[in-house]
Design a protein around this nucleic acid. Sequence first.
DNA 1: CTGTTAGCGCCTTCAC
DNA 2: GTGAAGGCGCTAACAG
Lengths: 328, 328
Amino acid sequence: MQKHPGIKDIARIAGVSIATVSRVLNGNSYVSPELSERVLKAAGKLGYQPNRIARGLRKGKTNTIGFLIPDIENPFFSAIVKGAENFLRKYGYTILLCSSAGKAEREDELLNVLYSHKVDGLMTVPLESQNPYLERIEKLGVPVVVIDDIINQKNISSVASDNYSGMKKLMQYLLDTNHRSFAFLSGDPHTYSGKERLQAFRDVMVQEKEKVEYEILLGTYTFSSGIEMLRKLRKIPDAIVCGNDMIAFGVLTELQKLQYKIPNDVSVTGFDDVLFSKMTNPPLTTVRQDYYMMGRVAAQLLIEDLNYKKRNSILLKTELVIRGSSRG
Amino acid sequence: MQKHPGIKDIARIAGVSIATVSRVLNGNSYVSPELSERVLKAAGKLGYQPNRIARGLRKGKTNTIGFLIPDIENPFFSAIVKGAENFLRKYGYTILLCSSAGKAEREDELLNVLYSHKVDGLMTVPLESQNPYLERIEKLGVPVVVIDDIINQKNISSVASDNYSGMKKLMQYLLDTNHRSFAFLSGDPHTYSGKERLQAFRDVMVQEKEKVEYEILLGTYTFSSGIEMLRKLRKIPDAIVCGNDMIAFGVLTELQKLQYKIPNDVSVTGFDDVLFSKMTNPPLTTVRQDYYMMGRVAAQLLIEDLNYKKRNSILLKTELVIRGSSRG
DNA sequence: CTGTTAGCGCCTTCAC
DNA sequence: GTGAAGGCGCTAACAG
């Protein structure tokens, strides 16, 4: 008799009906203290744990939130998940996690899986901005929060860092410290963050066009892409502005291999301020975004949508972090 | 009529019974090609997605696997999750993720949550080796795989790296390259990996006791703990052997701040070979464990338990990775 | 205040 | 080969 106990078993032992058991356990209706105690005692004795599957079927609410992200191994995404999970847990939600592994077709497939599991809500970091799969999500009728992208449709909540102003702050600092020639090593320009950062860089260059010179290379948000792009550079400028920290790490490594002194010969900057940015030698000047907070805010938005059908889009502030990889 | 379509709706449109719909969709019983086609067409038209909650209740199988780990933000754990997820996905499983945030009482609480969700199996990286909560898992009767720990009970599968032999390999290399004084900066000695690594270090020291001298400090697996322990060192030895890479990063940073030349003045080694170990300056000599593979093997063990009730414990090989932070 | 009953969506005997 | 009916465990009417 290893079968898991149900309210039926409790009812039998406590000598009451299953309805009474349900009422005691959910506490939404009055039950005499006497019966209540008998039920609780029986439940405790059996080590009863409610079957959330059955409850979910009955109530049309599973207390699960689907999470669809490109890659859980990436510290950026895992920090978001952590922030979100901590918040959602307080409201009794558990996370169903799926990684698209960077493939768009998996996004669609996994969306169906999550939907199939009847998640109460959905959080996603889309592979591309303006992804058509966002429309599909909307049609599903499940509350959703898009992370690291800003959606203007009024029925979808979203949260992202203010990449544009962050990059502008960084550029202003570089200009103020007498950097005049630049290289921008971009990450994926299809992503929201990629677009915004690149745009900010361009805007500043145009604005200062009389005193600066620059070149722009496109790559991906990876260490190896950083190395590659650096090698393609026509000349080493005053400052190499990288699309994110990973790219900057690649650049730092390769520059040092080529015997450049940083920041004396050239300044290098990143974007994100991941955990390791302060551990490199020299430590990296970068723009901090608070991923953990991003996950938390996303969870908050989802809860609001779930409870009050309120939607909102939030832009998070960034912070310029000046360290040893830039002179000035 | 925004309600999600069910087999009832399909049955009505296709003009068949719900039993026939179910049979076509599950393909386990013969249905005439004619009806079959009508059902499929109707299902496609409605964009039908099975309700896995209902199915789970009926079949007693939810196709979900519970994952209980200390901290998803830690790259070590997230890589494991990634490896496991990729494998489990092929078998139609989705992951329910919970982080214990390093608190033992949450391990118990979250275990109940996962159980409540009727997960088909469980994977966990326990906070401490010989954790009493493992006994509770066993009683629940849910197949489980313990990761980064080796469980000898015959009814629990487990997988871990061979930390002991990995550390021995590293020590042998250091001895061969004429290091004679050592400091061991340990991570948490309550964990399986902490114990094994420390034990290997001790065993080598005892074995070579005539020619070596050493000291041992205990801390945690963090960057800041590395810095702290370094400061407490009575003297800077030939080699500082760190419990893991994070500790080594702290040590590298602090040593450089104190103007030590690495590896000329002192060698520093880590353990794990996380992504950033090759990006430090100098890059870190360490012992590689393949987390991704660990997650994958864990998933494989779970599938075997699920399908054939087979249990097993597997020790994964490690690899010595010699880089610039050690002389020789 | 408590018990009886229906049914959430699906699968699976059991008849035909 | 196909349909009708019961039930997985639970909650929410509806009676009493």
